[in-house]
Nucleic acid binder design. Sequence first.
DNA 1: TTTGGCGATGCAAACGTTAACATCCGTGCA
DNA 2: TGCACGGATGTTAACGTTTGCATCGCCAAA
Lengths: 339, 339
Amino acid sequence: MSIKKVAQLAGVSTATVSRYLNNPEQVKERTRLKVQSAIDETGYAPNTLARNFRRGRTSLIVVVLPTVGDPFLENVMRGIWRVADEQGYSILIRDTQSNSHEFDEYTDMVFSKQADGILLLASISPFEEPTGKPRASNKVHPPIVLGLESVTAELNQFPSVRVDNVAAAADGTHYLIQLGHQRIGFIAGKRNSLLTHDREKGYRKAMRKAKLPVASGWVVEGEQTLEGARRATRRLLSHKERPTAIFCANDEMALGAIHEIKNAGLKVPEDISVIGFDDIRYAEIMDPPLTTIAQPAEEIGERTMRRLCQAIEGSDGDSEAEIVPHKLIVRKSTANAPR
Amino acid sequence: MSIKKVAQLAGVSTATVSRYLNNPEQVKERTRLKVQSAIDETGYAPNTLARNFRRGRTSLIVVVLPTVGDPFLENVMRGIWRVADEQGYSILIRDTQSNSHEFDEYTDMVFSKQADGILLLASISPFEEPTGKPRASNKVHPPIVLGLESVTAELNQFPSVRVDNVAAAADGTHYLIQLGHQRIGFIAGKRNSLLTHDREKGYRKAMRKAKLPVASGWVVEGEQTLEGARRATRRLLSHKERPTAIFCANDEMALGAIHEIKNAGLKVPEDISVIGFDDIRYAEIMDPPLTTIAQPAEEIGERTMRRLCQAIEGSDGDSEAEIVPHKLIVRKSTANAPR
DNA sequence: TTTGGCGATGCAAACGTTAACATCCGTGCA
DNA sequence: TGCACGGATGTTAACGTTTGCATCGCCAAA
C-alpha cells in the first residue's frame, strides 16, 4: 500500500525504495531487483498526492479558456499538450463559459497550490481599482502566461504570445478595400474581450487610412456564437446603408453571418463579402469557403506553454510580448464589391 | 504562510484555524474575527496540496475524451462541469488524440491518487488477455463511469450512460429507406471505436430488415475527421453502384462528406442524401442543413458525472447502463431517392 | 596494516493539514 | 452548593513521501 510496506517486504529502508522510484541509478542492481519484486507483489502505486505535497508542487497547469469545443482552441491545446507531456505536467481546464472572471480567482489557484501555473487564454474582468482589500501586495507574481488575448496595462507585466490583432484586422480590412468595398461592417465580440476590441481597432484604422467612413451601426456587437452572429448580421442587413462586406471578429461568427445572409436571400460573395479570423477547420468546407486570417494556433500553444515552464522554474526571462505572424487566407467568401 | 503562523498571530491553536476554515459555525464569533484578521494580515491561503493529502482525496476528476475542440463534446462537457462545480470537483482533461490507450493507463491515475475518478468518453484499447503481469487483481475497481461509448464485455461492470447507438442508427437508416433509398452507404469511424461499430451494426440491421443489400465497398472506414470523411466519400462516389444516400457515423464526417459531394459536382440532397449523428451546432448552418440524429449531450454529461460522484462516495448503485433517448432531426440534407 | 574516500544504504525530520481525543469553562438543574 | 453536561478550544498524532545527514563496508593507495 505505502512505501513502508514495500520497504519492509524488500528488506530495505523507505529511503531506498524512494530512491529506486526516483533515481534508480543510485541503487545497486541487486537491491533494485528486490525492490521491484516487492512492488510487483504488493501492487504498490506511489501516492502522487503525498509526493506532490512533499515536493511542494502539483505538476498541474490551469488553462483558462472561454469555452472548450472551440475548434480554434483545439489547435492551440494541441500545442500546449505537446509541451506539457514533454515536461510532465497535466492540464486542468477551466472553462469560463465566456464570462470574464476576476484575475484573483485564477491566481489564487496558484497560491493555494492547486496548480503550478496558469495559461490564460481568455479575457478577464477589468481590475476595479479601489477594492476594499489590498490586492495581495504581499504575494509575489504567480507564474502566468497570456496567450491569444491582447493585454491590458495591468497585465503586461506577464509574458504573452499572440498575433498582432490590430495589424491583422487592418490587413483583412485592407484586402476588402482593395476589392473595391467601401461600406464595410464589423461584427465584434462582447465588449469585455480585448481581443475583439483590438481587431475592431485594426478595422477602424484601415478604414480611416483609406478615408472611408464607418457609419454608425456598421459595427455591431454580438455574442461570440453562431446565434449571436446571426442576430448581429440581421441588424447589419437592415441598415439603411447596407455594407457590401462584413468583417467578423472570428470564424465562428463568420459562419453564422454567412448562414444568415443566405437565409435573407442574398449571395456570398456576390452581394456581400465575408471575412473571418482564426481559420478553423470548418472555414474551408463552408459554402462558400471562408476567407479568413489564420493564426499559427499550435505554435501559439506551444510557445505559451514553454514560457510558462520557464516562469515556473523561475528563470524569469523577458516578459515582452511574443508576436507571431498571421496570414490572410483568401478563399471564396470575398469578391469584388458589387457595383 | 502556513496555518501555524495564522494560529500564532490570532492567538489560537491550529485546530481552531482549521475549524474556522472548514466549519466556521463551530467557532465562536469573537474567535472568528481574530482568525479572519490574522488571515487577512498574512495573506494566508490554505495549502490545497496538504489538505488533499491529509484527506486522501484529490477532488479531481479525469475526463478522457478523443479530442477537445469537438463541438459535440463541448455540450457534454457543459453538463459535466455543472455537476463538478456543484460537487466541488475540478476537471482534468485527458485528450487521447483519438488513439485508444490502455485501460490501465487511466485506472492508474486513481490508484496513484492523481484523481478521484474517471469519466471515460473515449474508446480504449481492447484488452489483450494473456498479458505478463496479472491484471492488478489485488486492486479494487476504481470509480469509473463510461459515457457515450458503447461498452465491451470487459467494461460492462461499470456504470455507463449513452444512447442506444444500434437503435438510433437503425432509425436513421430506416428513415432513408422510407425515402426510397435502396443503395445506402455508411461511413464508419476507425475500427477501434465501439461507438461507430454499434452505429454500423444498426445500419446493417435496418438494411437487413428491409431486405436491402449492403454491397461490398458501401461501408467505408474513415478517420473521424473532415479529411478522413472526404477520402471515404471519394471512395463511395467512385463505387460502381454509387449509393444514393450516405449515413455518416457522426456529424463531423457528414460535413466532410457533403463538402466532398459538392466538390464532385453533385447535389445534396438531390443526387445524394446525407445523414449524420450528434447534432453539433454546425449541422444546421450547413448548406444544406444537415439531417442528423441528436443525442442529449448535456444530459449525458450531467448523468455520467452524477453517477461518478456516487461511485466515488462508494454508494455502489446498480451498474446498469443508462440509456438516454435519441431523436431524429430532419433537415434538408435528405430527400427522396432520385429515380 | 592502516587510512582515506566513496558508493550504497539507513535514520529520522519535515512538509501543512485534519481530526480524534483531551481539556477547560460556564451554565442550568437538582 | 455541587454536579453534569455541552460548547469552545487546545494537543498531538498521523497521512506518505523525500532528503539531509549519518553510517557502514569496501577498495585502493600509502
